[in-house]
Design a protein around this nucleic acid. Structure first.
Lengths: 210, 210, 210, 210
DNA sequence: AATGAATGAGGTTTCATTCAT
DNA sequence: GATGAATGAAACCTCATTCAT
């Protein structure tokens, strides 16, 4: 007997009136999908559940995104955009600001969206296009960390800086996974302040090359 | 239309002799299954592919492990055992030895099995029993790190030590994922020596509480 | 993996003005629908494509024809009417005129609508009502051929005449199908004159009972 | 309310025991599928009904034929083979024998399979590969008729002979359709003898060029 | 009257599992 | 004990139809 537990529905909104407005529906679907994709992975996520979470009819997923993979790519693109946004902001923030920003992204002491994005980037659909987006987005994040921490084409240490930036990103991914996806206790429910101190030290030791 | 890439078969053994002895078959299946479960996740793994990798008939999976979830649990148990083995060894190794051991586990400069085990522990089947094994195994690993780094029921810092141990484990998981599963470059192909230096510093800063 | 080719849109009219007057819209829809129904069959025809061909909103199909089957029946009725029109004309045309008329219908050397009508009559929707219309329309055509070629309640050969009339109709259907639907070459692009000679002989041999 | 009548199941065999033997199952499926494809068309045919007709589980269709289109292509290939079989036999039969053979194919006074094959060749799935098979098979049949009736690269009438052969094939297709698919009465239930006379004359007038 | 969003039924396909040899 | 065929549940997707502006 198949047993794959069917994660309980997470109703996004209570009302179930028709005709919510199409621009809104897409956003609702992407949000619901990202949450499931990020936490349960691509193949364990059922489009029916995503539609139920968003409170819309299942056929709208295909109407707007053409397929389950299209929906996944839309989530990834959103993630890529969200990461793209503050690109320039990185440039002149210095190591101190960079580390604080990475802490914020990892520990999410604002609205709770960024960790889901990071989690999502760890999920593969097996589709080549989606995997390319994932890879590029992660590479871009790492590259920004590298640039902000002194990477330069002419820098003799550029190789090491790149490596350390990818390690820093890996740390962020690992911590987010342990907290959000695995729910490791007490890590998951520890206060942001408790975690900031050791993590800040880790990020500094990786990104601040003397 | 992107096609969901169907991961190519990976023959576990070169020979394809029939009737290879039923005791051996189980081990072949577990090894093949662990590889797929760890890399592609539970639901993206097809038992037919596992059987093909192991070179055995698909029905044997159900005969030996009763179900796909049974096979997954068997893989997890193996992982737990592998981790259980040197339990006592941790006790008296001190911070230095502990860090070196964690480096070894993470960077895998021996036989390449440990990273797969860690990766496997990140995969959920959605099954309550299997998830409980995962959770407990991860908790046990973290707890050992904590004990080896000074945790004690009477230690006033025991909370912080526990937290830092879980962070160290999270770092290991994140790095293994980036290297093995994502194949982040150049991190993935960097030499162990290159990575040891920054990672050692990270683990030390987390586990050595002054 | 072969992809089910999605027949390209065929704009029925060049202009795409809105609010083109509801009376005209029905005719546009019927013309577009007949073309698709006749060439691709009932179930392979998508109402969305018909609406696109006609340049009108898809919901109008249901407003005007109540359902896809209603639209199909409307097409059939048009076909029946087109065939009904010159009914009386048949009566006194003699075998010679009859054969010439059948040649014209089959080879369509005027406006190109008749072959579509014949093709349409070969398509079934699976709906009982529509199928009854089809059957009756075909029977009526055959009966006219019979009457024009000497059929009479009191004619001792009336059975054979009816049979031969149905064979003649079958020949017309088969030739139209080969030319228009299958596009059999060089039959499809042969000149009317080339085809008239052998076909005339066929029709005569069937309808002129010595 | 959608009404597309669901053609009643046609049980091929009464018993419903398991494990019929795989080689047999494929044949059962092809036979059941050909019948439905030929009579109702590709898209009106539901694989579930085909499986039910064959008395086997629906999943076996995908196991053996990979997809609905694969099943359709298998049916077409069978038709092509069936037509290929007696190829050489055509060569030395002369016009008389050729006409008799065409009569047999059309009127089917043996086992009732050939008309279904001809009907099947009139059905399109919209798939390019399948359509190519159809086209080639029909072309091959026509070409054989042409050769048997005197076609030759050096024959000055070769163009006309080809055209007349395609017309003869069209006649056969039309008659089969009227009888088998439409069930035109009394044509459909007329005795073979009644139909042979007029049809023989038609085929002769088309294929015997003086 | 006309439109675009939303719906629900039903079709094809996948895949873990079980049966008989 | 081992195998390949067969099964059934459930997933994704399509499409005719209806609602609300």
């Amino acid at each position: 007997m198949p047993k794959t537990a069917n994660f309980e529905p997470i109703s996004a909104t209570g009302d179930s009136v028709r005709h919510r407005g199409s621009s809104n529906t897409k956003a609702l679907l992407v949000r619901a999908a990202r949450s499931r994709f990020a936490r349960f992975g691509y193949s364990a996520t059922k489009v029916r559940d995503v539609a139920a979470d968003a409170g819309v009819n299942i056929a709208l997923i295909n109407r707007y995104f053409h397929s389950k993979e299209g929906l996944f790519e839309a989530c990834l693109s959103r993630a890529a955009e969200d990461v793209d946004g503050p690109a320039e902001a990185y440039d002149d923030m210095g190591i101190e600001g960079l580390v604080e920003r990475l802490l914020e992204t990892t520990l999410d002491f604002t609205d709770g969206e960024m960790p889901l994005q990071l989690l999502l980037l760890q999920q593969s659909s097996g589709d080549a296009i989606a995997d390319e987006i994932r890879r590029k987005t992660l590479a871009k994040i790492a590259q920004r960390l590298a640039i902000a921490s002194g990477w330069d084409e002419s820098n003799p240490n550029k190789g090491e800086i790149q490596l350390r930036s990818q390690l820093a990103l890996s740390v962020a991914l690992g911590v987010v996974w342990s907290r959000v996806s695995m729910g490791m206790e007490p890590l998951s429910t520890a206060s942001v302040e408790e975690l900031k101190v050791p993590l800040r030290q880790v990020f500094k030791s990786l990104l601040a090359i003397g």
